[in-house]
Design a protein around this nucleic acid. Structure first.
Lengths: 125, 125
DNA sequence: TCTTGACCTGGAGCTACTCCAGGCTGCTAC
DNA sequence: GTAGCAGCCTGGAGTAGCTCCAGGTCAAGA
């Protein structure tokens, strides 16, 4: 499929997909005879994962490392770097729970501020 | 107190505090006879709120608007813009719950990926 | 044939920091 | 008193991660 559909399905913007490709953060994206990118379901899967990782704050450097490992694994030795890839995802899961704690704390701070402002919604509590 | 302590207490970095001041996103910060910034507890309170708002993704433009309203209110009409400031915070609370949903969804995606990788931690489930 | 729309590229612009050079001040140590 | 050092100051450059834009190609439809 073409880039517009890939964008729609993955959640990334067209520009972002092109940007990630430039940075070598995608598997090799093949081109049609017209020179346009053609995305396979596998590519979409990859883009979708990147979407979630980025959306929740994984830095591009980590994503780059992750992609690099996956590309290497696609070669001869299928298991090379698998442990590291897994670790990257596990680490990110920890980041998520920290983020969750931040959100809760911020909600508390907002409630306090809103109460100071005499927020009607807070007065029922 | 001085900027290093303000940074420590608010969670913002020294550079970020200076940056926010340049952008007019802080109440007026007074200077000591040495020309160094002196922060009051009120200032710290403000910085801390900004820390949480930024940490959870409020854009500087919104924070700028918020500060602007607060500064205007510090003048004659204490209630001017209060409703709008409240609304900014309420809107941000909605953003937080959307972010929370994103985190959950990402956790799901990670679990699926980890299971695909044959993650030991997932195999108990 | 002409227009429209989707794609292409390289590069500029933007947000929100972060870091750095160069300089002043105030304190301790000799 | 003066040398060294820490902490502050400023303006400006550098960075991450997009986002937008100009200028160009190509295929399909009116």
């Amino acid at each position: 499929m073409k880039i517009s559909e890939a964008a729609e399905r993955s959640g990334l913007s067209i520009d972002t997909i092109r940007f990630y490709e430039k940075r070598g953060m995608l598997p090799e994206i093949h081109r049609g005879p017209d020179g346009h990118r053609r995305f396979t379901p596998y590519d979409i899967d990859w883009l979708t994962l990147l979407y979630w990782l980025r959306e929740t704050g994984m830095p591009l450097s980590a994503i780059h490392r992750f992609t690099h490992l996956a590309k290497a694994a696609a070669g001869a030795d299928g298991d090379a770097g698998l442990a590291e890839r897994r670790q990257i995802l596990l680490d990110h899961r920890d980041v998520l729970s920290k983020k969750r704690a931040m959100l809760s704390r911020c909600e508390d701070v907002l409630s306090i501020k809103l109460a100071q402002y005499g927020d009607p919604a807070e007065e029922n509590e």
